[in-house]
């Protein structure tokens, strides 16, 4: 249930972002871009596991023998970690996706700051925020 709501939310944010990016106003385009970047961030987080309450620290070796979860790859046997036996819930959150999302957030902060300043300078040069007026380059 949770996953369905999450997927619909991500899809809605993508949709709203795309809609805003097709507007004429530069500021709306920029808001659309940052909405899309938020949607992507949500998508990345959602690839980790959500239901966990424990910190992702493997304490007792590579095999959690009590639960049967396998954490290491063994390609000769065709094992891709992590493998969770059926009927078991995973109580770990994947820490890597959170690191990825932090990086992505910082990057989208930098690009948004740059593009807002660029929009301000465009407003100064052209005297408009209508994106259809930005067509001096052609040929």
């Amino acid at each position: 249930m949770n996953n369905t709501i999450l997927s619909i939310t991500i899809a809605l944010i993508f949709g709203i972002g795309t809609f805003l990016m097709l507007r004429r106003d530069i500021v709306k385009v920029i808001i659309g871009l940052s909405l899309i970047s938020h949607a992507v961030n949500l998508l990345i987080v959602s690839t980790g596991v959500f239901d966990g309450e424990k910190a992702p620290i493997i304490s007792n070796g590579h095999h959690d023998s009590s639960s049967g979860i396998i954490f290491t790859d063994k390609l000769s046997d065709g094992i891709f970690a992590p493998i969770v036996p059926s009927g078991m819930e995973v109580h770990f959150v994947d820490p890597l996706v959170q690191a990825l999302v932090l990086t992505a957030i910082v990057i989208s902060l930098a690009t948004t700051a740059f593009i807002l300043i660029l929009a301000y300078r465009i407003h100064e040069e052209y005297g408009t925020t209508d994106i259809r007026k930005l067509r001096r380059l052609r040929g």
């Binding site: 530069i26 740059f114 930005l134 067509r135 001096r136 380059l137």
Partner: peptide
Amino acid sequence: KMEATFKYLI
């Protein structure tokens, strides 16, 4: 330059 950069960036 501003116009070109805006297109490129978006």
